[in-house]
Design a protein around this nucleic acid. Sequence first.
RNA 1: GCCCCUAUGGCGGAACUGGUAGACGCGUCCGACUCAAAAUCGGAUUCCGCAAGGAGUGCUGGUUCGAUUCCGGCUAGGGGCACCA
Length: 898
Amino acid sequence: MLFAEHSQKPQSLEGSPPKSIDFFMTSERYNPREAEGKWQKKWAERNTFQTDNADPRPKYYVLEMFPYPSGRIHMGHVRNYAMGDVVARYKRARGFNVLHPMGWDAFGMPAENAAMQNKSHPAKWTYDNIATMRGQLKSMGLSLDWSREIATCDPTYYKHQQRLFLDFLKAGLVTRKKSKVNWDPVDQTVLANEQVIDGRGWRSGAIIEQRELTQWFLKITDFAQDLTDSLDDLQRWPEKVRLMQKNWIGRSEGLRVRFALEKNAIAKDSTIEVYTTRPDTLFGAKFLALSADNPLAIEAGKTDPKIQAFIEECRRMGTSVATLETAEKKGVDTGLRVQHPFDPAWQIPVWIANFVLMDYGTGAIFGCPAHDQRDLDFARAYHLGATPVVCPAGQNAAEFEIGATAYDGEGTMINSYFLDGMEIPAAKEEVTRRLESTMIDGKPQGERQVNFKLRDWGISRQRYWGCPIPVIHCDDCGTLPVPVADLPVTLPEDVTFDKPGNPLDHHPTWKNVNCPQCSKAARRETDTMDTFVDSSWYYARFTDPHSSDHPTTKAADHWLPVDQYIGGIEHAILHLLYSRFFARAMKATGHLNVKEPFAGLFTQGMVVHETYRGSDGTWRTPGEIRIDSTPEGRKAFSLSDGSTIEIGAIEKMSKSKRNTVDPDEIIGGYGADTARWFMLSDSPPDRDVIWSEEGVQGASRYVQQIWRLVHEMRELSEGVAMPSGSLDERATAVRKIVHGHLMKVEEHIERLRFNTAIAEIRKMTNALSATIAAITSPDQINSDLRQAYREALDVMIQMFAPMMPHLAEECWAAAGHENLVSEAAWPQLDRALAADDRIVIPVQVNGKKRAELEIEHDADAARVEAEALKLEAVARELNGRTPKKVIIVPKRIVNVVV
RNA sequence: GCCCCUAUGGCGGAACUGGUAGACGCGUCCGACUCAAAAUCGGAUUCCGCAAGGAGUGCUGGUUCGAUUCCGGCUAGGGGCACCA
């Protein structure tokens, strides 16, 4: 026997009083504090959740977004990992070889900030936090393979990341270029576009400045087309995330048009190129506008002080992304003129405008005020006119005028020479075709072009606590990769954070090295990688986390893609797009053979909580108040002085609003199972869940309910085998309850509908309790019924085991099993039992329900109709009239139409 | 400004491809047990109405034998992008 016999010694049935169910009841309550630690230890001893890569069963890889070791886990983690654990445990029971690993996204700014404050080392802070959080996760009873644990700050991890960087460099997927970057003045580092939110740093919240720096870039734009196209194949991703990525990548098809410049003293080129998605509106052109950073604009500024002043004004404005949002449309006429492509006599003025971006398209546009709001605003400010060239259906072309709003809808071409009368798509095609075949300056005047909003991913960060970029700068040999044999380039341990900026930059012995090529004095790259690089490939590393020679091995090909990935919607763009890029880049460099890392994605909602505010306006924690529920509503009072507390809005748990709940306290008080159960039960997993004390108490009550029910059923089924052959009516009814609900629970879990899966389990336990309550005397309990309860007991425990694993083990042992329910195979569903042979269907008259009809499930339409019409309530409604039509939807409904 | 999502009892929510609206839970009320309380158990709980019955899924129009579900218009809340030509 594996375990000491369970202490519960249920009473014998003999001599028990009839009627009440009290005689079944155990006097002991289930004690999660004792049980949970015991089973966690047992799982660890038996390596229950360790996964063997060589296991021949079909694989299933379930992964939750790994945490940043910030200090302690929060309720969001509990929700995320509870969901993943249900999937992992369920799939394991269903016979899959499940990979369910955990690790730490361990590089990042907070460790440096803590180091500055506490004068300790970021590594110590990080590893201390990891130790704390690992303990907390273990107390949740997650079925994780801890032998695969990784931390991205560990040289055994980032060594391989440096190797990937060098391979990407060799493959041309890395560039170093001078560019305008988003500079976070608080964190003193660069941020990627994706990390700037509403003009502020995603972490610091500081207003972002624009600076020009030399940076390392990963060429995510090389895959822009495939990254957008492949979204269509990600069937098991939320539509919302795919759409957000699609918009972010921002593919557009248009035409690059060359306008011939009139002779002038400024321009070196004889044409100006613009990019447009609306070549159909070419005859509505009123001006060309250059970006202030356009080389031609800069050239023009050199000879004209007025233009120079305007460019400088734009630069000042451009230093803050936030100011762009409110900026008026402004510009200056360069005096340059271009020819209209289809009318050499038509001169168009060339302006410099503050709303034209240099890094999209060609840094120049043609303005069609009638059909583009920005162009219209600009044209109104400088009286450039707005001739409509597209007329909406139903409008008189001669009278159609543009007011304050540009018209960007469909319509017919007007005022447009040879395009007149065409619809927009035909006009686009016609202009494109004509300009493609006209040559100017030895090139076609128009060329089809696809543009993307997506920019290359700048990964240089001027920080210490990150993965060093493995590159050496030599004055003679240039920028050289660190030889692979010298990897990892480890971080120096003796650093100080007393000066602003990058500590690596102030560390002479680390920074100064010899050139790997010429051996002369050279300098290490002191930038480290954006921490999003660390999390862009960890899912692959988990498949063979201790391989020391290579980032990945054949195991990655076996396990990837991740079958089910679960995490927050906040990563819809950043992390998920970078990971998709990384998989492609790793495929291109031979490290992977898939390009999509996550076949299934699920984005969970947040954990939210009521807020509480005292009369003095200060926030109060849930622990500082007491709530009274009355028919008039809920009222809150201060525990310390009894004063009235205002119950505020339900908001995301945050330290500032003081509405957080500590997972440790919940797990310590109610047990992990109760926390997991409530977290999964109360809301659909993709929506926010409101954490409430009452809800947790309900879950806790249910744990005890199950404990009692298990003992009742154990009593009833003592010493009998599982059902075989057909049983009597009473017993079959019990079996039908079990299999009917088993089928539904399976469906709900497969679709990740944890809340409805839990409702189904509760329905089943309610129904089983009712059958037991209906037993009025012991002589009603025959061998058939005992067998049915024997099965019901096991199946019930297995059904809630993925959500409440500790309680399930305790019950499983109480039911007399010597193995672990975590290692047991999922019960075999009997579909015949799951289906009902008599069903109740509603009967409507003229679409209103008037009666119910109970009938065999396989009754044919004629019989259903005959029986329905016989019903008294139906006859009464008909009142002698003959039905015009009777609609019968098998097993669903009868509708009698009069 | 553009794009997307959501709207169901006092509350969280359920209702597979159009087919009994309100499952399951929370809260509340009534009852049992108790000297009492807690815990536990049983019952009620969309609204109006004593009842028969009627109304009802944000508002509004449509398709249909039948609409929470599909289509059009609107309102409110939430999210994403944001001078991307």
